[in-house]
Design a binder for these strands. Structure first.
Length: 462
RNA sequence: GUCUCCUUCGUCUAGGGGUCUAGGACGUCGCCCUUUCACGGCGGCAACAUGGGUUCAAAUCCCGUAGGAGACGCCA
C-alpha cells in the first residue's frame, strides 16, 4: 500500500514553530516511504482565518524546502461535502438533531461541576421524534458507548479508551456549518490519507474521530501523535518564551537548514548523530525513533547549530542570503570586501543578523562606539593611531595584511607597548567594536586611504 | 474532577536484562591557540523521579506513589 500523509494547519494565527516540526515529520515520513505529502488548509473558522496566514504557511514551507505534492486542499471549499455526510448519517440513523440550547447545556455543565462529576452530553435528544419549533438544531453523532476503542499509534503505542467516555459530539452547528471533527474525518477519508501525523494534543480527539469513521463505514488510518514542544520552563511554548512563530526565526537570521536540523533532533534521534543533512534525514527517519516525552525548546542549541551551518555555507551564498538584512544598499565595492572578509566574519556569527552587523565594517566607518571602547580611546591611544596612520600614508607601513602585522609588532616592541593596546585601539577606530576579525585584515580590505581616515577620525561619536 | 500520556546530566538525547564505575551534543567551568572576540583542540563538573517486586543480574520488565503535560467546546 502506498503511503499518503497530510499536514493540515489552520490559518487562524501565524504558523507555530511546533507545527513546522509536525510538517517536517510528515514530509520525512512520506519521502522516506516514497509516499505522498499533501497540504490541507483548515480554514473553516472563517472569522479567525486570514489569507495572510495562509500565504505565510506556503512561504515558510518553501523556505524550509518542505515541498508538498499536488495542490493544497482548501477545507472551506469542501463544506457542502461535509454537510452531505452529516445528513446522510442522520438518514441512516447514526446521527440525530439536537435541540438543546447552549444555555441549557451550560447549566448542565455547571451542575456537573458542582457535583464534582465529569461533564458529558446526556443524549437527551437522541430519541426525539418530533422537532422542536423555533430552535435551529445541531446534528450530533450517535456515539457507540459499548466496549472500548484501541489504536496502535506509531508514537504512543497501544492506547485504549473506554467508549463510555464518549459523548455525542456535534457534527453540524446550528447554523448548518460542519465542525472540525467532521471535516477532518471526511477530508482525510476523501483524500485517501493512510497515516495521520499530528501533535499529541489531538490524541484524545482521535477516539471521537474514529467514531465518525466507523459510523461512515470507512477505513481508519494509522495515527502518529508526536509530543508537543515546550518552552524552557516546561510550559507550552508561548510568546513569553521568545519567538514562537516560524517567521520570527526567519527574521531573526536563522538558516532553514539549521531550523530543520534542530527541529528534527528535538524528539527524534539517530544514535549520536547531531548534524544531519536532509538526505540523511529522509534516509533515516522512522517513527521508531520518535520519543514519547515532550521536549523543551533550547535556543542556545539552535544558535550553535545555526553557527555551524553559517560556517558551512559558501561565502557567495551567505552574501546573497545577507543582502535583504542590510538596512542600506550595498555597492559592488562593499560586496567585494565582504566576500573577501567572509571567512573570518562567519567564524564569529551565530545568526545572519550578527553576520550582517559585523560585516558593516566593510560598508561604513563606525557611527557609534560601544561603551567599553573608551578604554582604548585615550590620548595615548590617539597618538599611536595618528602615528600609525601617518606611517601608512607615507608608505612606511604597508597595507598588506601580513606585512602590516609584522610592522606593527615591531613598532610595539620598539616602543615597549603591548601589542594588544595598539590592536584594540585600531579595532575601535576601524569598526567601533571590541570584537571583529583581525585588524590587519580589516586594513587590508579597506585599503590604505579609508583605513587612514578611520584611524584619524575623532572619537566624539559616543 | 474524569480520561489519556510522559519521567536518564541544566537542555536535547543514546540505552531496548549483563559490554553502564551510564555514552554523545548544547550549555557551563578550566587549559591551549591568539592583537580582541570567535573558530578549533584538550580536559572537568553534571543524570537513570520515588517505593516495591520479577531475576543469578534492571536505567532497561511488572505494580504502586509522586511530579509534569494534554484532552474533556455549536475552536481548530
Amino acid at each position: 500500500m502506498s503511503i499518503k500523509v497530510r499536514f493540515a494547519p489552520s490559518p487562524t494565527g501565524v504558523l507555530h514553530i511546533g507545527s513546522v516540526r509536525t510538517a517536517l515529520f510528515n514530509y520525512l515520513f512520506a519521502r522516506h516511504n516514497n509516499g505522498e505529502f499533501c497540504l490541507r488548509i483548515e480554514d473553516t473558522d472563517k472569522l479567525r482565518s486570514t489569507d495572510e496566514n495562509t500565504q505565510l504557511i506556503f512561504k515558510i514551507l518553501k523556505w524550509l524546502d518542505i515541498d508538498w505534492d499536488g495542490e493544497p486542499v482548501i477545507q472551506s471549499s469542501r463544506i457542502e461535502r461535509h454537510k452531505e455526510i452529516a445528513h446522510d448519517l442522520v438518514k441512516k440513523g447514526k446521527a440525530y438533531y439536537c435541540f438543546c440550547t447552549p444555555e441549557e447545556l451550560e447549566q448542565k455543565k455547571i451542575k456537573c461541576q458542582e457535583l464534582g462529576q465529569p461533564y458529558k452530553y446526556d443524549g437527551k435528544c437522541r430519541e426525539l421524534t418530533t422537532p422542536i419549533v423555533g430552535i435551529s438544531p445541531v446534528v450530533r453523532l450517535k456515539s457507540n458507548t459499548d466496549g472500548s476503542t484501541t489504536i496502535n499509534d506509531m508514537v504512543q503505542g497501544v492506547v485504549t479508551v473506554k467508549n463510555s467516555q464518549m459523548d455525542d459530539l456535534v457534527l453540524l452547528r446550528s447554523d448548518g456549518t460542519p465542525t472540525y471533527m467532521l471535516s477532518v474525518v471526511v477530508d482525510d477519508h476523501d483524500m485517501g490519507i493512510t497515516h495521520v501525523i499530528r501533535g499529541d494534543d489531538h490524541l484524545t480527539n482521535t477516539f471521537r474521530q474514529i467514531q465518525i469513521f466507523n459510523a461512515c463505514g470507512w477505513n481508519i488510518p494509522t495515527f502518529g501523535h508526536i509530543p508537543l514542544i515546550y518552552g524552557s520552563d516546561g510550559a507550552k511554548l508561548s510568546k513569553r518564551h521568545g519567538a514562537v512563530s516560524a517567521i520570527d526565526y526567519m527574521q531573526l537570521g536563522y538558516l532553514p537548514e539549521a531550523i530543520s536540523n534542530y527541529l528534527l533532533r528535538l524528539g527524534w534521534s539517530h544514535g549520536d548523530d547531531e548534524i544531519i543533512s536532509r538526505d540523511d534525514a529522509i534516509k533515516w527517519f522512522s517513527f521508531d525513533n520518535v520519543g514519547k516525552s515532550p521536549s523543551r525548546f533550547d535556543m542556545a542549541k539552535l544558535q550553535n547549530l545555526n553557527g555551524h551551518y553559517i560556517r558551512e555555507r559558501s561565502n557567495e551564498s551567505l552574501l546573497e542570503y545577507m543582502l535583504p538584512f542590510f538596512k542600506l544598499e550595498l555597492s559592488e565595492l562593499h560586496k567585494k570586501r565582504i566576500l573577501r572578509g567572509m571567512d573570518s566574519l562567519k567564524a564569529r556569527a551565530k545568526t545572519i543578523i550578527e553576520l550582517v552587523d559585523s560585516a558593516m565594517v566593510y560598508v561604513q566607518a563606525p557611527t557609534s562606539y560601544d561603551e567599553k571602547c573608551r578604554k582604548y580611546q585615550t590620548d595615548f591611544h590617539t597618538e599611536i593611531l595618528n602615528d600609525i596612520a601617518n606611517k601608512i600614508e607615507s608608505g612606511e607601513f604597508s597595507c598588506d595584511e601580513e606585512t602590516l602585522c609584522s610592522q606593527v609588532k615591531d613598532y610595539a616592541k620598539e616602543r615597549n607597548i603591548k601589542l594588544v593596546e595598539i590592536a584594540q585601539a585600531m579595532r575601535v577606530a576601524l569598526c567601533g567594536k571590541l570584537v571583529s576579525p583581525s585588524v590587519f585584515e580589516i586594513v587590508a580590505l579597506l585599503g590604505c586611504s579609508e583605513s587612514v581616515s578611520r584611524l584619524r577620525a575623532n572619537k566624539s561619536k559616543h
